[in-house]
């Protein structure tokens, strides 16, 4: 039957790796969102959450390394597949026209994915690897609000916010194809349930991207009134 290692080099196997890592990343995206939304409850709730999370160390390091690994695998394996796909059509067509209903979300997968990679790196530099009580945490009243303050200051800048919102729209597009694609790649396609999953996939993507985007939008609209 061939060793399991060939699973990890086969086209189908690697796609399933992308699908599984994608699913794990979706779980992370949901968890992350839940934490983020605490911002609406004010600085205390938000900072407490951040503190609690930090209190889980060193166990949290393990999760972070795992998450990082999942992310790298997801991106790297996809990158190889996309490159192979590019090579597989050795000569481009003179005219390109879809016969089916290839969506923009599908077409843009590699691009939304790359944008998300850039975003994640930027995001880490922006909110994680910083002094959470430094000058970026001080709001209009002159007090430091910790991470809460950092976030509010960041999103008060329209350029900064726009970039975040754009990244979240990319995430939405990425997920709207990603979720249904997971079902197909793992082979759960079913004539009765697949159309429902497709709809769910689109609604889910919309909810996630709007929910994430609601934070910069809220801050932009209310600054400098917050907190």
């Amino acid at each position: 039957m061939g060793s399991l290692s060939t699973y990890f080099t086969s086209s189908v196997g690697r796609k399933q790796i992308v699908a599984v890592t994608g699913l794990l990343l979706i779980l992370f995206v949901i968890g992350h969102l839940a934490g983020n939304l605490l911002i609406f409850l004010g600085p205390e709730a938000f900072n407490n959450y951040a503190k609690k999370l930090a209190g889980l160390r060193p166990g949290l390091y393990l999760v972070e390394v795992g998450l990082c690994f999942v992310f790298v695998v997801h991106f790297f394996v996809t990158g190889v597949l996309v490159y192979e796909n590019y090579l597989a059509r050795n000569t481009q067509y003179g005219v390109n026209a879809a016969k089916g209903q290839r969506s923009w979300a599908t077409r843009l997968m590699p691009y939304t994915g790359t944008l998300l990679l850039v975003f994640v790196v930027y995001h880490l530099l922006d909110f994680t690897f910083i002094d959470k009580h430094g000058h970026r945490s001080i709001l209009a009243d002159g007090n430091s609000y910790g991470l809460y303050g950092v976030v509010v200051n960041a999103f008060a800048d329209p350029g900064h916010s726009t970039f975040y919102i754009a990244a979240m729209m990319a995430l939405g597009l990425h997920l709207s194809h990603g979720v249904e694609s997971f079902i197909q790649t793992f082979g759960f396609n079913h004539p009765r349930y697949t159309p429902m999953i497709k709809t769910f996939s689109h609604i889910f993507a919309l909810v996630i991207s709007f929910a994430y985007s609601s934070i910069p939008v809220y801050i932009l609209l209310n600054y400098p009134k917050v907190p």
Binding site: G100, S181, T185
Partner: peptide, 24 residues
């Protein structure tokens, strides 16, 4: 190349074979 679930194959198939078989 590798499948990226775009389903153009099904649309072009003269016998309209479903991508459900790919899932299977």
């Amino acid at each position: 190349g590798n499948c990226s679930n775009e389903y153009e194959c099904e649309a072009a198939c003269p016998k309209e074979i479903s991508v459900e078989h790919i899932a299977r």
